[in-house]
Design a protein around this nucleic acid. Structure first.
Lengths: 175, 175
DNA sequence: ACAATATTTGAATAAAAATACATCTAATTT
DNA sequence: AAATTAGATGTATTTTTATTCAAATATTGT
């Protein structure tokens, strides 16, 4: 089995929110917002979504957040923040990661039992492994990188789909 | 990054909950419970605390959880769970690896299936892996070390506790 | 010890989030 | 295409969580 890098492309132009009406796109938008903004309540998020022509109710939002496994966590300043499971890291590393993927540095991803093996272009393994480590702490216990191969050890209970979506290779609504 | 290893020191007499009435001890008990139990609501936690002779109200609990920065996150099974922030994960140190752990070289140990993954400070992995290989031949089939991660493959029939006591690292459940 | 100050707490309440239920819409089957 | 089924959503409501306010408790300074 070889998994290729077809998917990644669609993450690009998420700007044109007006055309996005269905659930999947709404979830994408929510992810985007939560990744870039401190949101402390569903009502707050609701307003942000409506600003983006995305009309929903708090009920739907509650369901969406549950689907996305978004956690609500207290901040040091006394406020609260919703946190996405895999995007609670700085955007910087994420950007770096994305560009690596975009350039085809990741060649393939295969699973064996509970383990995943990522093949990269020669020399890229440690760099990408580092990114995976930092970005996917929730899903991944750890990585071991050679020169062009990374062994990814998922945490218990983390599905293959979780790993895939973590890598932005596929966006899955089912989890 | 500093991992906090405070807990175990006064984890001794956590049995005697009756004598613990003040805030600090309550927070400690809450941490303990959340580390070892799936708790989905404050009322649930409230009952667990009352079971332990720790009488509080939901209001106090809400404040405590905010103080501890405990996040509420959805689980795959549709339920919810309170999660302590990662730096609350206990990492204890005694015995052979004391110095390494004390110096923070070993950052964490977690299991996934039959495998164990040890995280170390960058560069330490091979050194520590070599030690494990040599000292734990009975329990361990082999190790694979990256730069800051060691994959430990236990022999068949070797329990997690065996590995833990081998490493003299106190058991720490993934929250 | 006493007063002054700050912290902790519970009761009541407000605010926020989750869900039951009905309805609508999209997909699938026949 | 009509019927059936599954999925998505809104409204209303319940459940859960955060906070206000006042009282109690602890802490500090004199």
């Amino acid at each position: 089995m070889t998994i290729c890098k077809i998917y990644i492309t669609f993450a690009e132009n998420l700007n044109n929110y007006a055309f996005m009406k269905n659930k999947r796109n709404r979830l994408q938008i929510i992810s985007e917002i939560l990744r870039s903004t401190v949101v402390g309540s569903q009502d707050e998020l609701l307003k942000l979504l409506i600003d983006k022509q995305c009309d929903v109710t708090q009920a739907t939002l509650s369901r969406d957040l549950k689907l996305l496994k978004v956690a609500k966590t207290p901040l040091s300043n006394g406020a609260y923040k919703y946190i996405l499971p895999s995007y609670n890291k700085p955007l910087a590393s994420q950007g770096a990661y994305n560009s690596l993927v975009a350039h085809g540095a990741i060649l393939s991803l295969e699973f064996s039992g509970q383990l995943a093996v990522v093949k990269t272009k020669p020399g890229y393994a440690s760099a990408i492994a580092w990114d995976i480590d930092n970005k996917a702490n929730d899903q991944v216990l750890g990585t071991i990188a050679g020169d062009d191969t990374i062994l990814v050890i998922p945490r218990e209970g983390v599905s293959r789909e979780d790993i895939l979506s973590m890598l932005n290779i596929a966006f899955s609504e089912k989890n």
